[in-house]
Design a protein around this nucleic acid. Structure first.
Lengths: 209, 209
DNA sequence: GTCTATAATAAGATAGAC
DNA sequence: GTCTATCTTATTATAGAC
């Protein structure tokens, strides 16, 4: 076994950062193993292929995040039989921000990864929606519908995808946006600030007339 | 000269489609020249490098689109001294949809390209905002401010970037979304339908309390 | 302007010694 | 599990004949 665990973790840590910053196909296994300070062959030994490494990087986040969102969703349903749309969307805030405790810059790394994987052929993102976590998605959609019963299923579909785009895209470029805000508006904002600015925007969009 | 013009155009046409479908770094010059049915060396002869070809593909759209948006903006200002937010955002509809007359699937191709270029290192998108077309952006922002005077400059900045994310991201995956809508909701929707569904969402988000 | 041939480089992956 | 060395393949780009 030796350092198997730490090597695998070193690869995951290095890979997620490079993927988030530069994208999947723009990041080579050579860059990853160099940054991780492990041998070139270890990526294929531990993960089989670069593609499986990409999967593993995303899965490591989702398998923590999605159960947390699930807990929030059931908590909201119990505490509040008729939550507002803004309350429904807020179920994401705590789980997503708590990724920062789990790993440095965890929040923005995951969201950047989601942004990348959505445009980069969409394979991994579809997995997120229709794959293992479909029941949590359904639970969330049901709450949206309850908070905004006027919307048809097709309208909910479109507006939730608009929402997804807003969030993922914003977060994929959050570093640049925070820099501009700092320079142009003297606004010292962190990732939490961005998330909290997003919620009213999204809630208003989804409940638009 | 010979077929210079048609070769160059054939390359641009093939490239824009491949870039929109698969991304910039996932598309090789070999694929482009094969699809265009021209010689491999012609990309470098006519454009210098693959990167300059990417620029040329995007520029060909923007140099038509941005002046049209400018016309709409001044038209709106003259016709309507106090336009609503929804009217302000609607200035994009006609110019963007008219790209379909210019070239088959022009609308979705450009918007997919913008989606790609935003995450793919953001170089081309920044050009769009801060480069040659900065005055048109400023004109648009001024109209947004007039329609929604309660918003601070910093709030406008954030909300317009949220908007940008919504649009670009949606359009980058519009084909997939239209397919799902067709399959799941029996909804025969074209790109115009997506654009028109986006406007209320965006307008509500920007004017959120 | 167009073509073939090829250079130069970088990629993912693996065989086999330790 | 880890390492070196290497294979195979694909890339962008260019030199030089036509």
């Amino acid at each position: 076994m030796a350092n198997a665990q730490t090597t695998k973790l070193k690869i995951l840590d290095a890979a997620e950062e490079l993927f988030a910053d530069h994208g999947f196909s723009e990041t080579s296994t050579r860059q990853i193993t160099k940054k991780a300070e492990v041998n070139l062959a270890s990526v294929n030994y531990h993960f089989g292929s670069k593609n499986e490494l990409i999967q593993a990087v995303i899965e490591r986040y989702l398998e923590v995040l999605v159960p947390n969102i699930d807990v929030e969703l059931t908590g909201l349903k119990n505490d509040n039989p008729n939550p507002t749309l803004e309350e429904v969307f807020s179920v994401f805030i705590r789980p997503i921000l708590s990724l920062n405790q789990q790993r440095k810059n965890g929040t923005s790394i995951l969201l950047q990864l989601l942004g990348r994987s959505y445009t980069d052929s969409q394979r991994h993102m579809r997995r997120f929606f229709l794959g293992n976590y479909g029941d949590v998605v359904a639970k969330f959609v049901a709450l949206v519908y309850k908070a905004q019963p006027g919307l048809s299923p097709s309208e909910i579909f479109w507006r939730l995808h608009f929402t997804l785009g807003t969030v993922v895209f914003t977060m994929a470029s959050s570093d640049a946006l925070m820099d501009i805000a700092r320079a142009d508006f003297d606004e010292q904002i962190a990732i939490e600030g961005v998330v909290k600015r997003l919620i009213p925007f999204i809630a208003a969009g989804v409940s638009a007339p």
